[in-house]
Design a protein around this nucleic acid. Structure first.
Ligand code: MN
Ligand code: MN
Ligand code: ZN
Ligand code: ZN
Lengths: 138, 138
DNA sequence: GTTTGAATGAGAATCTTTCGCATTTAGACC
DNA sequence: GGTCTAAATGCGAAAGATTCTCATTCAAAC
């Protein structure tokens, strides 16, 4: 459906790419998914795409700015559809819940710190880990 | 030498653990090393320790609070000796240079954000990526 | 010094991700 | 619509990082 988005991103509108993009757009709550997550979820919904293709396409989407890659799990990457607005994440170490936030003070301090150290900042990753409200009750 | 530190941490003072701890303590500039880095560097200096043991010991040191694990490279962990003071990192995406910093404003905002989201904060990771001064000149 | 459970080393195994290559396909051109 | 061609796919093999298994060794308690 969104083959226009793909072409705009300089990517040929192939069936696997369309399927994966559609899938990411329709995965409301669980926005943050690993390649394996995407692969399995698509299998279950009958949309067959090779695992290697999922990895390739997600990486291409990242380069094209369609998705963002995160490494807050340490041992594997998770991806989320890029909605244009940057945000950071706070994660529950018990249940895996993920909340998003933006803090202008932190954003500004980061730029200041980069400048202080003579760096031209290109990116940053901020992950806050903790126990969410629900998990504290248990 | 520092077998006392190990015992204090509840770890038996074995030869591999003593060697690795000594090595970490003597690695001045390159404080941030992967398990493989530690393994190879020790081989070169004649201190033979199995790779699996390096992985095991570093993980034990982490649990004991002797070292801190970072994932700023995405695909593998790096470790650094814990000096008691928390700090964050700014990394050059060209040459891999790592600088350390502490920013109280950011630290406080993080706690505030956790509270706002109902989380009991346990940890956080902040990595700023950019091009360092030297690499900008090239 | 002896005993014994814990730690080690070596390689196998696992997990995530990438590669190689034969086959398929999107998009350009007729 | 039919042809063509480079690019994309799917599969299994391969790679890199880390963990596991298990026989052997060792620290430290007695
Ligand atoms: Mn997000
Ligand atoms: Mn550091
Ligand atoms: Zn939770
Ligand atoms: Zn640099």
């Amino acid at each position: 459906m969104e083959s226009s988005d793909l072409k705009k991103a300089g990517l040929k509108a192939t069936l696997p790419r369309i399927k994966i993009l559609n899938f990411l757009e329709s995965s409301g709550r669980d926005r943050h998914m690993s390649a394996e997550d995407v692969y399995k979820a698509m299998l279950e919904s009958g949309e067959e795409v090779g695992l290697a293709t999922v990895y390739r396409v997600l990486t291409q989407f990242e380069s094209a700015g369609l998705v963002t890659r995160h490494n807050f799990e340490g041992d594997h990457s998770v991806f989320e559809l890029n909605d244009g607005e940057h945000h950071d994440h706070i994660l529950c170490v018990k249940c895996g819940r993920v909340e998003e936030f933006v803090d202008e003070v932190i954003e500004q301090r980061q730029h200041a710190i980069a400048k202080e150290n003579g760096f031209a900042m290109t990116d940053h990753a901020l992950y806050i880990y903790g126990v969410c409200g629900d998990c504290q009750k248990k």
